[in-house]
C-alpha cells in the first residue's frame, strides 16, 4: 500500500485547476468580447467587484474547511452597511464605523457559533434562521429605508482612484482584501487554530480524541466569519455610499460558490485562501464579461450556474481519478 503514489498535499497544486479555469474564462471574454474588456479600467472594475465577494469568502473558507456553512453572510453585510451609516450619522468617525460594523458582524457570528455548538443544531438550519433574523434587524435599524450618511473617506474604499493616487493601482478596498487574505492564509497554515480547523473538518472525532476544543474552535470560526462579513458591509457601504438594508440578498450563495469553485469541499477538511480568491475572480470575470458583451442578466445567471456545477464536477472527477490510481 505504501508504494502507491499519493497525491501531493501542496496547496499550490490544488489551486492550479481553478487558476487555469480563471485564465480560460478571461481569455474567452478577451477573444470574443469587446476590446474594452481587456482595458485596465475593466481590470480595475473586476478587482473592485471581487473585493466584496472575496472578503466575505475568506470567512466562508474557514467555515467550510471546518465542515460548516454560514448562510447569514448576505444579511450581515446589509446590516453592517446600515450600522456604518448610523454610526456616521451619530457623529462617530469612519474608524469608529468600521469597528462597530466588525463588532456587529462578530456578535452575529458568535451567536451562530454558540447556537451550533450548544444546541447541536445543524449549521445550515441555524444560519438559515440567522439569515432571516439579521435581515430583519437590518431593516428595523434602518427603519425600512436607505440610510444616508455624511461623506467621509469610507466611500473612497471602493471608488475609482483619483489621478493623484493612481500609484495605488487599485482602490484601498482591494488592498484590504489582499491584506486580509494573507492574514487568513497565515492563520490556516501557520497557527494551531488553523491546524485545528482542518482537523475538525477532516474528522471531528479525531480532533476530539486529540484534545482539540472543538466547540471553542467552532465558535471562534463563526465569529471571525461574522467579523469579516462586517468588513464586507463597510465595503458595501463604500460602493453604495448609503446604508442599505435590502442589499446583498443572496450574496452568501456567490460566496459559497467562490469557495467551492476554489476547491473547498462542503464536507469539510479542504479549501485554500488562494483557491477561494481565484473562485471569487472567476465569478466577477464572468459577470463583467457578459455585461460588457451586452448580454442580459438572465444569460449571466445561466452561465454562472453552469460554471459552478462544472467546476465542482471537474474537481470531484479529478479526486476520484487520483483515488482510483
Amino acid at each position: 500500500m505504501s508504494e502507491t503514489p499519493a497525491r501531493s498535499a501542496s496547496p499550490w497544486l490544488s489551486t492550479l485547476g481553478p487558476l487555469i479555469g480563471l485564465v480560460l474564462v478571461y481569455l474567452f471574454f478577451a477573444l470574443i468580447g469587446p476590446d474594452s474588456f481587456t482595458s485596465i479600467r475593466t481590470l480595475q472594475t473586476i478587482a473592485r467587484q471581487t473585493a466584496i465577494v472575496g472578503t466575505a469568502a475568506l470567512g466562508m473558507t474557514l467555515v467550510i474547511i471546518l465542515g460548516g456553512i454560514d448562510l447569514s453572510v448576505g444579511s450581515i453585510v446589509a446590516m453592517t452597511s446600515v450600522v456604518v451609516a448610523l454610526v456616521l450619522n451619530a457623529g462617530g468617525g469612519p474608524a469608529a464605523a468600521i469597528v462597530m460594523a466588525m463588532l456587529a458582524g462578530a456578535l452575529t457570528g458568535l451567536t451562530s457559533g454558540t447556537l451550533v455548538t450548544r444546541l447541536k443544531v445543524a449549521p445550515f438550519i441555524v444560519t438559515l434562521g440567522m439569515l432571516l433574523l439579521v435581515r430583519g434587524v437590518a431593516k428595523g435599524l434602518a427603519k425600512e429605508q436607505k440610510v444616508d450618511a455624511p461623506l467621509t473617506w469610507l466611500v473612497e474604499l471602493l471608488a475609482s482612484l483619483p489621478p493623484e493616487r493612481s500609484f495605488m493601482i487599485v482602490p484601498p478596498g482591494v488592498w484590504m482584501l489582499a491584506l486580509l487574505a494573507v492574514a487568513t492564509a497565515v492563520v490556516l497554515r501557520y497557527t494551531r487554530l488553523g491546524a485545528h480547523i482542518f482537523s475538525i473538518g477532516s474528522n471531528e472525532k479525531t480532533a476530539r480524541l486529540c484534545g482539540v476544543q472543538v466547540e471553542r474552535v467552532k465558535v471562534i470560526v463563526y465569529t471571525l466569519t461574522g467579523a469579516l462579513a462586517g468588513v464586507t458591509g463597510v465595503l458595501q457601504f463604500s460602493r453604495l455610499t448609503v446604508g442599505d438594508p435590502t442589499v446583498a440578498v443572496g450574496l452568501e450563495l456567490d460566496v459559497i460558490a467562490a469557495v467551492v469553485i476554489g476547491g473547498g469541499s462542503l464536507s469539510g477538511g479542504e479549501g485554500t485562501v488562494t483557491g477561494t480568491l481565484v473562485g471569487a475572480f472567476i465569478m466577477t470575470v464572468i459577470r463583467a464579461g457578459t455585461s460588457q458583451m451586452g448580454l442580459p442578466n438572465w444569460v449571466q445567471e445561466i452561465v454562472t450556474g453552469t460554471i459552478i456545477v462544472a467546476a465542482v464536477a471537474i474537481d470531484r472527477w479529478r479526486h476520484r481519478r487520483v483515488e482510483a490510481a
Binding site: 501557520y190 494551531r192 491546524a195 486529540c210
Partner: peptide, 10 residues
Amino acid sequence: LSRLPRWLRP
C-alpha cells in the same frame, strides 16, 4: 495534532 504550538512552522 494533540500537541501543537500556537504558531506552527510546518
